[in-house]
Write a protein that binds this DNA or RNA. Structure first.
Lengths: 218, 218
DNA sequence: TTAATTTTTTAGATTTGTCTAAATTTTAAA
DNA sequence: TTTAAAATTTAGACAAATCTAAAAAATTAA
């Protein structure tokens, strides 16, 4: 089945709100979509009639199994485009979201599967959010060495191997610790050093150091 | 200014019809867009009010300078996406058009300029049609050696250098002559030989031969 | 547990793009 | 040059998605 841009935006928004609360209210959704409660009710009836929602008037709604499946495919499209924009076209972290909002509504499954392949089946988007695979499955959140974090992508430091005093001194000097959120800005091929952005600071670290820092996407 | 998908489709269709006839009729446009004459008239009033058309009721219309400029930018988006789909995602000549129809309506100028750069500023799309540059200029139609024709791209043989009897014999055998339309399917890195599609046939030619065949896009 | 407040839904209007059917204008034919 | 045919426009209706204002239901507070 095929859905309008508006229907897709509603499904996606409901999915995201459900991550926090399993049942979503009319007002919460209206705020998220920058629209009015009355408009939400209208759309809920429509999506409900299509079997994408469990909806009890006055008591909120949640995605049906089918609705959730569709939402995940929309999110898949969104995050793959974000990855493309960031990695291939060099857009910054902040710019990709808005553009992906538009691209995500081009719904050809074949296009998205080819794009996925072209990008090397990335498990996370530049914001660190997992990208549903061709079957709608989300990658489990795993940690991996900082050197594998793609350009323009955000990670959170979760582990540091090699706890020598020398290394800890260096980390402290650069103000990097467990929980630090950092974004990879550049890889220098000459020495494999990496330029990071931490909040507003720009920091360069050696390959040796990067290999010992583990991050999770976030 | 920003335009709806529908307005963009009308502008593009008028541009293409104008290539054949400088003034476009209501019925011709209705047929091209698979819609009704009455709908066309409605839209003509709207585009006319926006200054994109020269419109005399009952006497057809043509794009204003501004309308033409916008049409060229839509065509730029369309053809760049076609090139991307063909060259990067491996879609065939026949598949790219429909997908590009959807992608072309994502209108961020920055996105398209970055895509253009990423693709290496291609002057022609896979159908051989020229891609307007960032200023809306179309490449002049030039001939170049077959070896430079990108994968999944159509060219028309327009010149054959080295007119030795041996070469002409080979060309005749492969049924290639001036005016032959061919599509490049594959480059084999091992010997630089090229696999072509000519109508429904698949033909392989050597690098040596390909260097002597000149084509124009289209 | 009743009244006040908040949330949600309904009713009716609006905009965009489309349609059919009727009216108008132009073009072609007798 | 008048009439018939074809093309175009107008008028009025409809579907999708939205809005405001009013009504209905649920929640909270006295």
């Amino acid at each position: 089945m095929n859905f309008s841009t508006s229907e897709e935006n509603y499904l996606k928004a409901i999915y995201h709100l459900q991550e926090e609360d399993s049942t979503v209210t009319t007002n919460a959704l209206a705020e998220k979509l920058a629209t009015k409660a009355a408009s939400v009710t209208d759309m809920m009836k429509k999506l409900s009639a299509k079997g994408l929602l469990n909806y009890t008037p006055y008591y909120g709604f949640s995605l049906s199994a089918e609705g959730k499946k569709i939402a995940l495919f929309i999110i898949r499209r969104h995050r793959l485009w974000e990855f493309f924009l960031s990695q291939k076209l060099g857009f910054s972290w902040g710019e990709v979201h808005q553009l992906a909002e538009e691209l995500e509504h081009v719904s050809s499954k074949k296009l998205i599967d080819r794009l996925d392949e072209f990008l090397g089946f990335p498990p996370y988007d530049p914001h660190g959010d997992p990208i549903p695979d061709g079957k709608g499955k989300l990658a489990a959140r795993e940690n991996f060495p900082l050197v594998l974090l793609p350009i323009n992508t955000v990670g959170e430091v979760c582990q540091v191997t090699n706890q020598s005093a020398e290394m800890l001194e260096l980390l402290k000097h650069k103000n990097i610790g467990i929980g630090t959120r950092l974004e990879v800005k550049k890889h220098f091929p000459f020495d494999q050093s990496i330029e990071l952005k931490i909040k507003t600071r720009t920091v360069t670290i050696s390959e040796q150091l990067a290999k010992n820092i583990f991050v999770i996407h976030e």
